[in-house]
């Protein structure tokens, strides 16, 4: 039945080797095999962004990436955003701005927003909305999410200065 493949990769800065079937998505392996359940499944077809992760720093939907594709690459998931008990500025501003209600979309938004700020530290409101338009949230109407990203950008700039 199963022809398992051995995959060597780096996840959240740790080298990891796992076994998977070629048909398994990265999302399935993260959640079911590696028990990294912070990445969420909202659609499994690239429509919602709840499964967002960074692959070599690029934002991808992990439900659309085959697990075997991450061999030799580096994956960052929501579990890799904070360092110890030191939250990423986005995580802090999401909390302070009540940018989550049910929270199921939150890991995806945080990962996507981190990717945005990594490459554009001063995004306009429109740039934030444009960048995050692949992430669906049904609870917040996006207002507080956009504000939290703006606040994080400001905070990170203040720290950098």
């Amino acid at each position: 039945m199963s022809n398992y493949v051995q995959v060597e990769t780096t996840i959240n800065d740790e080298p990891i080797t796992f076994l998977c079937e070629p048909r398994q998505s990265l999302l399935e392996v993260l959640r079911e095999t590696l028990k990294l359940t912070g990445s969420k499944e909202g659609c499994n077809n690239g429509n919602c962004g709840a499964c967002s992760v960074l692959l070599d720093g690029r934002l991808v939907n992990s439900c659309l990436v085959l697990a075997v594709e991450v061999a030799g690459k580096s994956v960052t998931t929501i579990e890799g955003l904070a360092h110890g008990d030191h939250l990423h500025p986005l995580q802090k501003t999401f909390l302070e701005h009540a940018a989550l209600q049910c929270g199921i979309c939150t890991p995806g938004f945080l990962v996507a927003a981190k990717a945005l700020l990594d490459h554009n530290p001063h995004p306009s409101e429109h740039e934030i909305r444009y960048w995050l338009s692949g992430n669906l949230c049904r609870c917040t109407g996006y207002d507080k999410i956009v504000r939290a990203v703006q606040a994080a950008a400001q905070e990170m700039e203040a720290v950098a200065r």
Binding site: S39, K40, T77, L81, A82, Q91, F94, L100, P107
Partner: peptide, 13 residues
């Protein structure tokens, strides 16, 4: 809140 922003909160799935 913190559990939810670090991806540790446990949802049904």
């Amino acid at each position: 809140g913190v559990e939810k922003v670090i991806g540790r909160a446990k949802y049904g799935a």
